[in-house]
């Protein structure tokens, strides 16, 4: 469809404005991490690498990064295993309550984080009698990280159809051999894309984390929140924020590339 010059100009400017609203604040954070001002004033009075140096010498910040990475990796690993299993069950078998299970698996991504957080907090402490720790955060993150893996894998399984698996069974392979030699290689890129998204989702999560983290468990977002309003810490927080943004964006970038390379167009399958 051809657009008139006017409509093209209008649409382009609108797009520009919207993208600016979304990304200029991020750019400000990025610039502030190099600013000589301590109180996030604008425009930055000068350029310095001091905050970056300080951030990387800050034991609290480094520990927070490590904690976040650990949680994200563990939650992703759980999601990959459980998400793949539930996708296989829902896509390849017919059973009572299949549609209900399908909905229940996707739901956590739509639930408000604060509800999930309070509910899990309650369940962990009062019902299960479990001490809040890093493990409870991992379990809590896994509840919604499963969704990204599930969505990617089930879309792939649907597209794949059953004929390759039937061919494998026909040639004498049992269920496990078929999965190992035929299904899994076909799922690999979907798993990678889903896993990267799960990692990014966990890495920047804060609400559920606040309710499920044990004492002394400080993830990167929580570290930022705790330090944001402390005097003299603002530029360091900017540095951490940039790290956090990169830690979230890079996996998503690769997940997109993988999905794109597979010719998967459905944006809806990612979150």
């Amino acid at each position: 469809m051809r657009l008139s010059r006017l409509s093209r100009t209008v649409l382009a400017s609108l797009t520009g404005v919207i993208l600016a609203v979304m990304y200029l604040p991020l750019a400000v954070v990025f610039v502030n991490s190099f600013s000589t001002s301590q109180s996030l004033t604008w425009p930055p009075p000068g350029f310095t690498l001091e905050w970056w140096g300080r951030a990387f010498r800050s034991a609290g910040a480094l520990e927070a990064i490590l904690t976040s990475v650990q949680i994200a990796l563990a939650a992703t690993a759980i999601s990959l295993v459980l998400g793949t299993l539930i996708s296989l069950a829902l896509q390849r078998y017919r059973f009572f309550g299949r549609d209900a299970v399908s909905l229940l698996v996707i739901l956590p991504i739509a639930l408000p984080g604060i509800i999930t957080g309070i509910a899990l907090n309650n369940a962990f402490r009062t019902i299960l009698g479990v001490q809040l720790s890093i493990l409870t955060v991992i379990v809590a993150h896994a509840t919604f990280c499963i969704v990204t893996v599930f969505n990617n894998v089930i879309a792939r399984l649907r597209r794949l159809g059953t004929s390759l698996e039937e061919a494998s069974a026909d040639l004498g392979a049992g269920a496990w051999t078929t999965f190992r030699l035929v299904t899994f290689p076909q799922l690999r890129s979907a798993l990678l894309a889903g896993g990267l998204l799960a990692f990014a989702l966990s890495f920047d999560e804060i609400i559920v984390t606040t309710f499920t983290a044990g004492a002394g468990v400080t993830t990167l977002p929580i570290f930022i929140l705790n330090n944001l309003f402390r005097p003299n810490q603002a530029p360091v927080v900017s540095v951490i924020a940039v790290v956090l943004v990169l830690g979230s964006i890079i996996p998503i970038y690769f997940a997109q590339r993988i999905a794109g390379a597979d010719g998967m167009r459905s944006r809806g399958t990612e979150r």
């Binding site: 004929s163 390759l164 061919a167 494998s168 040639l171």
Partner: peptide
């Protein structure tokens, strides 16, 4: 053994 309509090659 089966020869599938869409061949189903891996």
């Amino acid at each position: 053994n089966t020869v599938f309509q869409d061949y189903a090659l891996f």
